[in-house]
Amino acid sequence: MQYLRIEDEINYSKKRYEIRKTIESIFLHEGYIQMEPPTFEDFDRYTYLNKRLTRESMVKVIGGGSEVFILRPDITTSIIKSLIPRWQKDLKLKLFYNSTVYRNQESESVKEIKQMGVEYLGEDSLKADKEVILLALKILNELNDMFILEMSSSKYINGLFNKIDAEENVKKQLKNLIYRKNRYELMSFIEDLNLSKDIYDILANIMDFQGSIEAVEYKIKQYYMNQEMEEALCEIKSLNEVIESEGYKDKIQVDMSMITELDYYDGLIFKGYLPNSYKAIINGGRYDSFTKMFGNKVPAIGFCIDIDELTEMKSKEVD
């Protein structure tokens, strides 16, 4: 029995380098500029700004004067934090990163997670949405043309939830049930909520609101919609045109019941899947309201690619 040899490890590293190179050259070709986020962040300030990460999951480092720093746990926050507070009007930036984040994980202590991604800041929403979604499609297609891109607009669920008169923790539970596509428990949960019939009917059927954009439009038009929900549908429809003209129509699955792990998105959200991987390779969306927390509301959209999972998947393909 022989375990992994040095050559195996080197080969793996080579594979990863090639993948990063391929993606990087697409980013460069589309006019994105590389940015290296700072490695260290101030612990107190960071936890204040970004509450969704638990304090335990951050890797702490003690400075010379006993100040506590953390190794960057997330790249978008680092980039946004350094640019948005002194944002100049009319500035448009297309940035990419090829980097690593650090988290404490129960089973293996400090974990290095390799990520690449883009952030498109300051550009009028629809134009940037189109550009970024096409970039994601192009990359997925380059990696494996059997991919699927799942998308929605968080405005649909947000608009719906604004009409629900319930406490925050009830809404959180509702979201979690939808996130897990747990129709059975969702049904018994909403039974007790005293909802209006409009809202009840949507929640009871929301997991069927998926498929091609035409199918989804047909389904949701039979139910209640407020302005925000209409906007969501409009956004997706206008993206559908470019997607169709670029020939990616059959790769798209619209799912209006899509809920992301991060709740700072407000608009387009999407996930890219490749066959033989067990989790999403691409995660992205629009996060204008997140920038507002840093002093200026700037149109912002981006996505992140899971390089570790991608490399593993690609090296399986070779075998």
Partner: peptide
């Protein structure tokens, strides 16, 4: 229960 990626590819 269902894997999230399988759900898409084998929908």
């Amino acid at each position: 229960i269902c894997n999230r990626v399988s759900y898409r590819f084998k929908y």
